[in-house]
């Protein structure tokens, strides 16, 4: 349990750091992928809603601290993203790559639209075409591609963790 917390914490830490610095050089069609979002979706699919929600919360909180305008906005979004994605996992064959690709695509569209909506609704009229064309759809496609790698990475981490857990005791 302790090892899990430490390792997940380190993962979030490094992903957030990559996301805010070097990833700017990996822009395609003027968008960069959202690794934290993919990480939340992967964990939620693998481990269900409770763990998904907790990881989502902390990923969001990290993002809030790096560049949020109010503290808690991304945390709340991440929490519900992890919770909702994690709640639908039981009837799916999780190891299939298409599942994670599909879920990442849908989550990105919903998540980014929420960010856009709450970011503009109090100031400017909400426009539907240009944000979808310029940011949401390109980012969703980019995320879906990257999600395969992060998903495999997440599976590896959990394999290692369960190995470590099995040795001393079972719970």
């Amino acid at each position: 349990m302790k090892a899990k917390i430490i390792i997940l914490g380190l993962c979030i830490f490094f992903i957030a750091m990559l996301q805010s610095t070097v990833l700017d050089y990996a822009r395609v069609y003027n968008v960069k992928p959202n690794l934290l979002l993919i990480f939340i979706v992967s964990i939620a699919l693998l481990k269900g809603n409770v763990e998904g929600a907790i990881v989502g919360f902390f990923c969001g909180l990290t993002q809030d601290m790096i560049a949020g305008k109010v503290i808690g906005f991304y945390a709340l979004l991440g929490l519900y993203l992890g919770l909702i994605v994690g709640s639908v996992n039981k009837r799916l064959y999780r190891e299939n790559v298409l599942v994670i690709t599909f879920f990442t695509f849908v989550s990105t569209v919903i998540y980014e639209f929420c960010v856009y909506f709450f970011g503009t609704v109090f100031r400017n009229p909400v426009d539907f075409i240009s944000p979808f064309k310029n940011v949401i759809i390109p980012e969703a496609i980019y995320n879906s591609v990257i999600s395969v790698f992060i998903y495999i990475f997440a599976i590896k981490i959990y394999d290692k963790l369960s190995e470590m857990d099995r040795l001393p005791r079972k719970y």
Binding site: N34, Q63, I66, Y116
Partner: peptide
Amino acid sequence: AKDPGNWFDVFN
């Protein structure tokens, strides 16, 4: 550091 998302332009 720059904004992790694609919407805003906040940097550190």
